[in-house]
Amino acid sequence: MSLTLSDIGRIANLARLELSGPQSERMLSQLNGFFDIVEQMNAVDTTGVEPLAHPTAVIDHVSLRLRPDVASEPNNREANQKSAPAVERGLFLVPKVIE
């Protein structure tokens, strides 16, 4: 299979990226070049193979660690917002959100 420019546009929008015309063209050829390699995967029979999400699960059962329900984080707003682009009265400012 091979991607089209409209695929590039749809994906860029999903990813919130803005690509110029030439950038899209370039991205298209590079992604198609890449997906040629990816097609090798189709040749592999993976029926009944459990996907491996956490590497060490291959030798040992991995399960989620749970933490006690204790609230111990102090208010650190000032430090946390130090690198924020726009803050007013402790709120992060963004262009109006329309619902």
Binding site: L17, L31, V38, V44, T46, E50, A53
Partner: peptide, 28 residues
Amino acid sequence: QRRIMIGTYVLSHGYYDAYYLKAQQIRR
């Protein structure tokens, strides 16, 4: 940006099984 595009695509509707899931199976 390239990798964000690739990643967004392989997770997007209709391609997840063919790419991401398949890759995780071969990973095993």
